[in-house]
Design a protein around this nucleic acid. Structure first.
Lengths: 152, 152
DNA sequence: CGTGAAATATGTATCGT
DNA sequence: ACGATACATATTTCACG
């Protein structure tokens, strides 16, 4: 992965709505050469997917919860089970497996409190593996950047 | 925003790499009608932006930190200052303003520990407003979904 | 909202470095 | 192995019904 690939990735992380022509011009390549690289980056899985980011409040109040989950036992199998449940739950938009007193941090995105309640009943309270969890209610998501730093 | 718009948004949240033609077919519209709606959704800001999601590990080890920040005083101006600093810091990929003992939760994405250290020095330790912070180190990001639930 | 034609962009083959 | 040019195919975009 050379400088040109990094330039392409940097641009695609910011905006994929440009045409291949415009992208090629930006990074200093011919359209065909640029397209070849973009396709290769997709094939290699470096570009995982291309998605639209929607305004959270345009879709009915959107509520974000940060949930710190502590498991009952440190057991790989139980961890795997929990991760599967989390992956299957559409309310969980992010899951981080962390070190320390807490085992997981979830970002849960729901339209309202009732939805969050139902999620807790269905996923967290229903699991024997979950020892306890603490919810931090987000009043506002002031930054949401999908871009990863390529250069820090 | 009717059913057709929601169907379009649902698809765009999953994948924007399809052509307008394919999208139109999916949602049951002619290409021109579909394009008009997509453009309107962009103009209204409901579609904020279109981006590529990159594989975090394809770009050198990517380390995610969850940082709980507690402010020294509950002061709107100081909060605003902190939010500005956070917005300016490329390491901070997400910021949630939360209620409870903690005031903010940040997601900080860096290539390694040294980068995180530098970030702490530059942003967190340098700010008088920050009373204390707790870092949860993520070993693994097991789920990362930008999609917001349109229907839960 | 759909149709069809003009304007643009994408994709491919080939050549040159 | 990679990029540029040119040509064929596909898509976007717009005027009109």
């Amino acid at each position: 992965m050379d400088k040109l690939d990094l330039r392409i990735l940097d641009q695609l992380q910011r905006d994929t709505s440009l045409t291949n022509q415009a992208l090629a011009e930006q990074v200093g390549l011919s359209p065909s050469a640029c397209l070849k690289r973009v396709r290769r980056l997709r094939e290699r899985g470096i570009v995982q997917r291309e998605v639209a980011i929607l305004a959270p409040d345009a879709l009915g109040a959107n509520l974000h919860m940060l949930v710190e989950v502590t498991m009952a036992r440190d057991n790989k199998t139980l961890y795997g089970q929990f991760i599967k449940q989390v992956e299957a739950a559409p309310e969980v938009t992010q899951c981080y497996q962390v070190t320390g007193e807490v085992d997981f941090v979830l970002v849960v995105s729901v339209p309202n409190m009732e939805s969050y309640d139902r999620f807790c009943d269905r996923v967290l309270d229903a699991s024997d593996n979950v020892h306890k969890f603490r919810t931090l209610i987000s009043r506002k998501r002031t930054k949401f950047e999908t871009r990863l730093p390529l250069d820090i």
